[in-house]
C-alpha cells in the first residue's frame, strides 16, 4: 500500500548510536514512515533513511494531537524477557522472567509498569504479554 509520511519536529539534538540510526538536530523536521512500539521510528528524508528515537520527536500539529493510549491503572500482565538495571531514579530494575503489570504504553518505548508496590519505567522491548508464546 501507499506509504503515509507523518512529519515530526526534533526537540533536542541526538547523536546516533549505530550506522542504522540518524543524527538529529533540534528544530529540524523529519518524515516518519514506520513506528515500532519499542520506541524506534523509521525516518525517510530526502537523502537520509534510518531509525530515530520517538522520545526526541513531537508532532508538527502540536502536542494535542497524540496517538498515545490512556493509562490503564488496572494493569495488563506482562513478563520481562530481559533484565534491565535502572539508570534513572524513575526506572525499575528487574530480572528476566518477572511478571509485572503495564499501566501506560508510552510511544517513546519506555512503558510505565508496576511490580508490587513499585512503579517505574521499563523498556517495552524487554516485555512480552503474559501467556503469549515467545516467537522462536
Amino acid at each position: 500500500g501507499p506509504i503515509i509520511l507523518q512529519t515530526y519536529r526534533v526537540i533536542a539534538d541526538y547523536n546516533k548510536g549505530s550506522k542504522y540510526q540518524l543524527n538529529l538536530k533540534e528544530g529540524e523536521q523529519v518524515d516518519i514512515v514506520e513506528k515500532s512500539t519499542n520506541g524506534w521510528w523509521f525516518c525517510q528524508c530526502e537523502s537520509r533513511r534510518g531509525w530515530v528515537p520517538a522520545s526526541y520527536l513531537e508532532p508538527l500539529e502540536g502536542p494535542d494531537e497524540t496517538e498515545e493510549q490512556e493509562p490503564n491503572y488496572a494493569g495488563e500482565l506482562f513478563v520481562t524477557t530481559k533484565a534491565y538495571t535502572a539508570e534513572q531514579d524513575d526506572e525499575l530494575t528487574l530480572q528476566e522472567g518477572e511478571t509485572i503489570e503495564v499501566i501506560h504504553k508510552l510511544l517513546e518505548g519506555w512503558w510505565v509498569i508496576r511490580k508490587g508496590e513499585q512503579t517505574g519505567h521499563y523498556p517495552s522491548m524487554f516485555l512480552r504479554k503474559s501467556g503469549e508464546i515467545r516467537a522462536a
Partner: peptide, 22 residues
C-alpha cells in the same frame, strides 16, 4: 539491519521534557 529497529532500548526523552510532563 536497516529493516529491523535497533535491539537496544531507545534513549529516554530529554530531561527538560520529562520535567515538563510531571
Amino acid at each position: 539491519s536497516m529493516k529491523e529497529p535497533p535491539s537496544n532500548p531507545p534513549p529516554r526523552p530529554p530531561a527538560e521534557l520529562r520535567r515538563k510532563r510531571q
